[in-house]
Every structure is written in structure tokens, then in C-alpha cells.
């Protein structure tokens, strides 16, 4: 019997080994020990080539998370059949003390019909309240500029924390106006906008990260580093601020652009730096206005990849406003078409 299969010590609910070396323990309940393991592994610098877990209980949710974190062997005290099927299908060495048909918990039922592992991960993070995003609730929204026809009437949509939405519409349909309403810069004619259950103008500063449509004609010396640095929390200690800026630039593969003038960068590079700015800001709602304008195919792919990784890591709520139909297919998110009946 390997060390990871030996009985859990009193009070512990999760023990993690690399080979025979114990590297992590946790006493929590539900999936919290596994999310704590994820955080631990992000900074753990020792070997993790043969991760083995001993968990007190595991359903499909735990199995998905363990595989995501690189677990190769699992010993579970109380395991469900869907979990065993999943472990075996993914080639994870599995053993258990007791197997039951299903765990008697809501999470197990919720995941019954879902196979997309990224989607499962997002659901679990949302249920664990580990999502950076805020909820957005738009109800009966109408807006018209003076002496003009209404741009939209009785618009409804809602997004949960960490939700993703593409607002699609041709030019002149009010996409940018809707962004300005969400930013609190315009007042609706009727209806309400609630972000994290507050009016947009009542939100704490830095809640909304806004990436504008790229401007091409600007010429002014401001470095990529300065653009990212302007978003960092000024209350953090100086070393922490530097770390946040550096991390944000590295996350978006733009550290090498740091000393270059933002306005001399290509469209794709500017989008990466802008995303780094919102990461540094720790924006909880990300608004992107026509993010693919002026982007070549390679930059588009990079942008889509970055947005995808954001939806799995920090999970801010993201609203993309675009008339680019290809982007809809590439992202595969929920779509709201301006001009349709939104009742």
C-alpha cells in the first residue's frame, strides 16, 4: 500500500503527496480543500510530477478538479460512480474505501449532464465564490439621444458573477451607448442597470475595466508600463505594486513591450497591454468595445486565447461589444443582438 492510500489523519479531509512525499494537507469541507490545493500548486516550486491525493469524499466535481490540477493517483474514502467513471476514462489510477451510486449533494446533480470540463470548472468556482466578477442586471432599459429615435427600448439581460456576454449589433445600433450606460456616463430614459446590486455610479472605483475601441491616430509618448501602472491599486505597498504590474504584463505576454510607446505598438500588442491594464486593475466587470478592430489573424487568435484564459482564472464578468460575427463563433459565448426583441 502506497503512502497516499493510508488512512487520513484525524481531522484532515485531504492529503496530497508527490510520490511518497506529503506536500499538502487540508481540513476543509466540500471542494474548498481542492481550490486551496490549486492556489498552493501555483506557488509550489518542488516536484509535482506524480501528484497523488487521498480525499475523504469525491464526486464528479472533485474528480474533474483533481485531473485539472495534475493528479495522477487518487485514493478516495467515499467515491461516487460518476467520479470513478471519470477517473478511469481519464487514465487516473483510482482506489477507494466505499463506492456509492451518487453523492447526496447538489453539485453532483448539477454536473450530471455537463461534459465540458471548462464549463464544469467555471460552475464550481462560481459555487465556491472564487469568482472575481460581479453580477449585471439590466431591466427594461431604454435610451434615446435628444431629438432622435430610441436606440433601444425595453432591453433586458442578466449575467451572473463571472458571466460572459457578446453584444452584437451593426453600426449605429447603440453598442457604444450601451457601454456608456453601463459605465454610468449616460442616464437611461427608463429601466435600471444594477451591477453587483448597485447603480453604476455607486460602484467602488476600479470595479469596471474598460477597453476602448483602438484609436490609430494618437501620437504621444506613454509607455506600455505606464499604461498598466496607471491601473494598479495605489494603496498597495510599492513592491507589491511593481509585482502586480510585472505579473499583469507577463500574463498577457507583453513584458517585452513594457518600455515601448503604447501608441507605436500594433493593434494586437495594444490590446494585450490594455488587457494587462485591466488585470492590474483587478477589474470585476470587463467592457471591451470592438476589441478586434485593426487586428490581424494572429493577434485575433492571441486575444481570443487571452479572453478564454481570463474566463478560467480570474473570471471577471466580461461583456464584449462587437459587430464582428467571426468573434462570436470564436468565443462561443451567450449573444445579445441589439435590434432584436428582448422581451
Amino acid at each position: 500500500m502506497s503512502r497516499y492510500q493510508q488512512p487520513l489523519e484525524e481531522g484532515l479531509s485531504l492529503c496530497v503527496y508527490n510520490g511518497e512525499d506529503l506536500i499538502f494537507t487540508h481540513q476543509g469541507h466540500w471542494l474548498h480543500p481542492l481550490f486551496a490545493l490549486e492556489e498552493f500548486l501555483q506557488t509550489y516550486e518542488g516536484p509535482k510530477d506524480l501528484l497523488s491525493v487521498h480525499d475523504s469524499a469525491a464526486g464528479k466535481a472533485a474528480a474533474v478538479l483533481q485531473r485539472r490540477f495534475g493528479v495522477r493517483r487518487a485514493h478516495i474514502d467515499l467515491v461516487s460512480e460518476p467520479a470513478v467513471e471519470y477517473y478511469q476514462a481519464k487514465g487516473i489510477e483510482i482506489s477507494w474505501e466505499k463506492k456509492i451510486e451518487r453523492l447526496a449533494c447538489q453539485t453532483e446533480n448539477l454536473l450530471k449532464e455537463i461534459d465540458d470540463e471548462d464549463e464544469i470548472y467555471r460552475i464550481l468556482k462560481r459555487r465556491a465564490k472564487l469568482v472575481q466578477g460581479v453580477s449585471v442586471e439590466v431591466t427594461g432599459l431604454s435610451f434615446a439621444y435628444p431629438n432622435s429615435e430610441p436606440l433601444f427600448e425595453n432591453l433586458h439581460f442578466s449575467l451572473p458573477e463571472g458571466g460572459r456576454l457578446i453584444i452584437q449589433g451593426d453600426n449605429g445600433m447603440g453598442k457604444t451607448t450601451l457601454i456608456n450606460l453601463l459605465l454610468g456616463r449616460l442616464i437611461p430614459a427608463s429601466g435600471t442597470i444594477r451591477i453587483d446590486d448597485r447603480e453604476p455610479n455607486d460602484l467602488p472605483p476600479r470595479t469596471i475595466g474598460y477597453i476602448k475601441q483602438q484609436q490609430t491616430q494618437e501620437q504621444f509618448p506613454v509607455s506600455a508600463h505606464e499604461v498598466v501602472a496607471m491601473a494598479v491599486d495605489p494603496n498597495l505597498p510599492r513592491e507589491r505594486q511593481a509585482w502586480e504590474i510585472d505579473t499583469a504584463l507577463r500574463r498577457t505576454a507583453s513584458a517585452h513591450l513594457s518600455s515601448r510607446n503604447f501608441f507605436s505598438l500594433s493593434g494586437g500588442e495594444r490590446q494585450r497591454v490594455s488587457l494587462a491594464r485591466t488585470l492590474c486593475q483587478k477589474a470585476r466587470l470587463l467592457l471591451l468595445d470592438e476589441p478586434t478592430s485593426f487586428l490581424d489573424a494572429k493577434s485575433r487568435t492571441t486575444l481570443v486565447g487571452l479572453l478564454h484564459s481570463l474566463t478560467l482564472a480570474e473570471m471577471p464578468t466580461i461583456i464584449v461589444v462587437t459587430h464582428d460575427k467571426e468573434l462570436e463563433e470564436e468565443l462561443g459565448w451567450q449573444i445579445l443582438r441589439l435590434g432584436d426583441d428582448h422581451e
Binding site: 509618448p221 506613454v222 509607455s223 505606464e226 518600455s259 507605436s264
Partner: peptide
């Protein structure tokens, strides 16, 4: 010649 606001 400047690439950043600080340099400018």
C-alpha cells in the same frame, strides 16, 4: 525621442 511620459 521619448517612449514614455516620464522620459518626455
Amino acid at each position: 525621442r521619448s517612449e514614455s511620459l516620464k522620459q518626455l
